[in-house]
Design a protein around this nucleic acid. Structure first.
Length: 274
DNA sequence: ATGCCAGGATGATCCTGA
């Protein structure tokens, strides 16, 4: 079983690139973030043609998360319990944004997550980001409380570089979001709730990233950040036998600014599929 | 402090991203 996550930065702009890679990389389940479209606008036909069902939540040109699966797609949940709300303007009612989507695929529970950016340390969006992560931690801890042996993957764009090794320059990010101690603490709290980074053991740093800014030849200069993660519950983490970052997908014209991240899982005991 | 690049919506310019 191959599970991947990718911030695609507009699925409408990038659907050919994404489906080409899905086929080439032989991915079973792909969680996507920043689809930047409504449900009606999501291009599901190219996925269906390759045998993938797609669940998507998107209500505007912002955010949007999806899960494409060719091993089943059941019990779809939009948003997680307690997910904080956000309003873009004072006169607009705050709502839960399209940043979290859960589904059961091939016996595992997958959550496609697009953690709020934070914008700047003084911005209300930063407090929203920390609230969002704290609520996710509480809810996800509850899932393991209900069933400690559940195979759960929390995957996506976390918008946090958990250690100094995960940014090309600590100086360049001083005073900025993604590297602040509260954000790192919020990320580690999710680790401590039982969800560990299952990719890092197979992709050791330093200098290993999943995101490179579009500007100033950041990719060519190897100026990136590691902010996209696959976090696994203990039962899922025990089955990971390989992981990689699809850095080649960041190359060339028309690339997303994020690379896909994938893992290979051993079959569950007693699993007769494949 | 700002633009650097990119996508989207609207209609040459703003908002957002990280």
């Amino acid at each position: 079983m191959r599970l991947a996550t990718w911030n695609v930065n507009s699925i409408r702009t990038r659907v050919d690139r994404v489906t080409d890679w899905l086929e080439r990389a032989d991915v079973d389940v792909l969680a996507m973030q920043e689809t930047k479209c409504t449900d009606a606008q999501f291009p599901s036909m190219p996925f269906a043609a390759l045998g993938y069902e797609v669940a998507h939540v998107g209500v505007s040109q912002w955010n949007g998360v999806a899960i494409a699966s060719r091993v089943g797609l059941a019990d779809i949940e939009i948003g997680f319990a307690g997910q904080p709300t956000w309003s873009s303007k004072p006169d607009v009612e705050a709502t839960a944004e399209a940043r979290a989507l859960g589904a059961t695929c091939g016996g595992m529970r997958v959550w496609s997550l697009y953690v709020p950016n934070g914008r700047s340390l003084a911005d209300p969006h930063y407090a929203y980001k920390l609230d969002w992560l704290a609520a996710l931690r509480d809810t996800a801890a509850g899932w393991l409380g209900d069933d400690a042996g559940a195979p759960i993957a929390l995957v996506g764009d976390w918008n946090i570089a958990p250690t100094d090794e995960d940014v090309w320059s600590t100086e360049a990010y001083l005073g900025h979001t993604h590297v602040s101690e509260p954000e790192r603490a919020a990320f580690h709290a999710i680790n401590n709730a039982g969800f560990t980074d299952v990719v890092r053991p197979f992709t050791p740093g330093p200098g290993v990233y999943t995101y490179w800014d579009y500007t100033q030849l950041a990719f060519q200069k190897r100026r990136g950040m590691r902010i996209d993660f696959i976090l696994g519950s203990p039962a899922l983490a025990a089955r990971v036998r390989h992981a990689e970052i699809g850095k080649d997908e960041r190359r060339g014209k028309g690339a997303s600014d994020h690379a896909p991240v994938l893992i290979d899982l051993d079959d569950q005991p007693g699993d007769t599929t494949q």
